[in-house]
């Protein structure tokens, strides 16, 4: 299936790629905008200008050195731990759900939730900063006590798609869950 264009909660364009591998297996990939070179330059300039202003008054060259190091370390941390390029939800009817996040540095983190622990996939609402947003989440149950929800795992935490995108993923997930039950 071709990529569909949506926006995140801040109005930035994101794309949703839905791949149907079989009637029991689907993969959803939400791709966020790439790291903006302009933004990087702006942040770097701001830090360096501030450092230069401090240096102007203190005449201490260590300030400039630490500003350069701080910028580089900050950038590495940002692309390795913060900036997510795309998030993937792979749902396999009989097996479970795999969540993957691919960072700007190429690092990947993967979580697997087996079907016996999965109670349901729902769209929930939350107060986020000064906004109220919809988010997709997996309800985890205790296999010993199937009625209680032990924890909630939010999906697409980095890209934060809007409701129209979430509904599309939700419907597809429910189709697979309905078949596997």
């Amino acid at each position: 299936m071709a990529d569909e264009e949506f926006t995140d909660i801040n109005g930035n364009w994101i794309s949703l790629d839905c791949q149907t591998h079989s009637s029991f297996c689907r993969e959803f990939t939400v791709t966020s905008p790439k790291l903006s070179l302009r933004k990087v330059m702006v942040y770097t300039c701001c830090v360096w200008l501030f450092a230069y202003a401090v240096f102007f008054f203190t005449q201490n060259t260590a300030v400039l050195s630490s500003a350069i190091i701080l910028t580089l370390v900050g950038m590495v941390i940002h692309i390795h731990f913060v900036k997510v390029d795309h998030e993937t939800l792979l749902i396999i009817g009989s097996l479970g759900v795999q969540l993957s996040s691919s960072y700007a540095s190429g690092r990947e983190s993967t979580t697997f939730i087996e079907m016996s622990k999965l109670k349901d996939i729902v769209i929930n609402e939350a107060v986020y900063m000064h906004n109220i947003i919809y988010y997709l989440c997996i309800l985890i149950k205790d296999p010993a006590d199937p009625e209680t929800v032990t924890s909630v795992v939010p999906l697409f935490q980095s890209s934060k798609p809007r409701l129209n995108c979430l509904i599309q993923v939700y419907k597809s997930c429910q189709e697979i869950l309905a078949q596997s039950r």
């Binding site: 349901d120 769209i123 509904i167 939700y170 419907k171 597809s172 429910q174 189709e175 869950l177 309905a178 039950r181």
Partner: peptide, 9 residues
């Protein structure tokens, strides 16, 4: 009792 995927439109 099964979840209807078209509940949310």
């Amino acid at each position: 009792k099964t979840a209807n995927p078209n509940d949310l439109t």
